[in-house]
Design a protein around this nucleic acid. Structure first.
Lengths: 206, 206
DNA sequence: GGGTCAATCCCTCGAAACAGGGGTTTTTTC
DNA sequence: GAAAAAACCCCTGTTTCGAGGGATTGACCC
């Protein structure tokens, strides 16, 4: 008997999955939460075999929640659910301890298979997630391309800060910021700021 | 008895809404489709009182599908469903004949209220959509704000062209381009190019 | 026909961005 | 523990941006 808990801020998704699972003999409904904090609270006193976890939650990202739950209860298996197959999300979830990744347009069969797989300690990635992870390895991943610092600076650029302003905020020299900016532009192949922001958006970096 | 049809590419959403509605005495389940083309096909031979329509469909946007269905069957009431409250989507759906707009994190009560309202010929907008529509009226609509020429130039800026390059392409003086650029920045309240592109993206202008 | 607005053109100047080098130190990774 | 990668720092130009002013024309609306 697999005890399944779900955290998702969409009542209809919760209800939908519940009514899909309730028909299964080997699946038991542990409960649900609409927010990350409710989920954390529940797992302080209870446990489950599998958590179906939405990535977009109102109070906290599923990425952080995933790490949090795993540190408290390492035995619990987490299956990430998302509407989007943004590479950055997939990587982050896996890195933070998720055991599987499923798109919300998955069929009932796929959902059940994924739950069973992760419940037995396996790993389940949907097709799209698999492709993304493969690309990452093949291609050295256009996404891994940017370092942590570079992403940080890119975000600040997108927020309209100038190089000197960024330098001040990060307590580094303006030249450093300029160096990072140049390497970001080289990596994203952007000729100027406008293209930089455009590419960043298109690649889901913002 | 309100006959409800749903088109959404997420099986769990379909299932969730179904199990929410099935408990209602005054709601009848007409059927569902996972793609826009299936939906169109179904409505050639059948009809319903209300369609719950996802905006993001695999083969065609809900925005187009909405106009298509309405032209064939004007009596049908369409309630748009979306995970995002992007202003551009809300406007476009309403313009294409949608009778309501609901976010997918709506509660069961809100969903039922929305269905009943549109079934009776009314209009139902969720809080977020209302705010967006209000802003449009208050503010003369962040979308009408930019003139045709300004949008054209904004697109070119986003494509990485500089003012002189844009001037050359449009056969006008660089001064002219600069004037337009300045007025775009004033209207969108952007301090620099980075913010300009960011705002343009957020408001669905690109 | 007067008012409004889009679209065009013009000028200056300081502050950024962009292109092109150079380099050191710290942290990862194998 | 060595190699590689990331993060940091520096300098010099040229180009573009961005803020601040202007002005003229034509189209559309009441």
């Amino acid at each position: 008997m697999i005890r399944v808990f779900i955290v998702d801020d969409h009542p209809v998704v919760v209800e939908g999955i519940r009514s899909l699972l309730i028909r299964e003999k080997n699946v038991d409904w542990a409960g649900h939460a609409l927010t990350a904090s409710d989920c954390s609270a529940w797992f302080r006193d209870h446990t489950a075999d599998v958590i179906l976890m939405d990535i977009h939650l109102p109070d906290k990202s599923g990425i952080d929640l995933c790490a949090e739950i795993k540190s408290g209860q390492p035995a619990v298996h987490i299956l990430a659910l998302s509407t989007l197959n943004q590479p950055s999300y997939i990587h982050k979830m896996i890195e933070n301890g998720a055991d599987g990744y499923l798109l919300k347009n998955a069929s009932r069969e796929e959902l059940l298979e994924a739950i069973e797989t992760v419940a037995m300690g396996g790993e389940y990635l949907c097709m799209e997630a698999l492709e993304v992870m493969k690309k990452r390895n093949d291609n050295e991943g256009e996404r891994t391309l940017l370092t942590r610092r570079e992403k940080e600076i890119l975000t600040l650029i997108a927020n309209g800060l100038t190089n000197p302003e960024i330098a001040e905020q990060l307590f580094v020299s303006p030249w450093t910021v300029d160096s990072h900016r140049k390497s970001i532009m080289t990596k994203l192949n952007a000729k100027n700021t406008a293209l930089l922001i455009k590419y960043a958006y298109e690649q889901g970096l913002l």
